[in-house]
Design a protein around this nucleic acid. Structure first.
Length: 153
DNA sequence: GCCAACGTTGGC
DNA sequence: GCCAACGTTGGC
């Protein structure tokens, strides 16, 4: 069992969008960073949990929890010429990019803001808080997961 | 393999 | 909109 943090820009796709999606489920597509892809493709397993993080918005932070319900499969947007995530170098016979399916678990009682995460000494080693970190999919330790979850209660 | 130029992320 | 910090591309 692994824990994750997944970023999404709420203008693009927010936790509310997921709550209102069919079966409260969506494909996590459009990851175009190799390190993030490797986590997603090689280490994300069914039943893993992930924090849903809102980025590039007025108050960045963790807003909810989702569950991985389908492990990695080729990202269909990479084959879609109409998509901004289209990648001509990703052949269907040798896909370069991958997606997983996630299902809504809960909204946190309150947003745990990036500022609050930074101010929590117990979280200072979190990948998210490392200088220059730009990963949209990253692992999170069980300790950090529990710490964040309990502060949300 | 080096590295300059360019593009992107994402907080502020 | 600014800009730091990366990641990618492509000439050499």
């Amino acid at each position: 069992m692994h824990y994750w943090l997944m970023k999404s820009e709420p203008d693009e796709y927010s936790l509310d969008d997921l709550i209102h999606a069919d079966a409260k489920t969506c494909a996590w597509e459009g990851v175009r960073n190799y390190q993030a892809r490797n986590f997603l493709r090689d280490q994300m397993k069914k039943n893993d949990l992930a924090f849903f993080y809102h980025s590039s918005c007025p108050t960045p932070g963790i807003v909810g929890i989702v569950e991985i319900i389908k492990e990695a499969y080729p990202d269909p947007l990479a084959f879609d010429k109409q998509s901004k995530y289209y990648d001509p170098q990703s052949a269907e016979s040798a896909p370069r990019w991958f997606a997983v399916d996630v299902h809504f678990v809960c909204r946190l009682n309150r947003i745990i803001t990036l500022q609050e995460l930074r101010e929590n000494a117990a979280l200072k080693d979190m990948t998210l808080l490392k200088k220059g970190n730009r990963l949209s999919v990253m692992p999170i330790t069980e300790k950090h997961w529990a710490c964040i979850y309990f502060t949300s209660l």
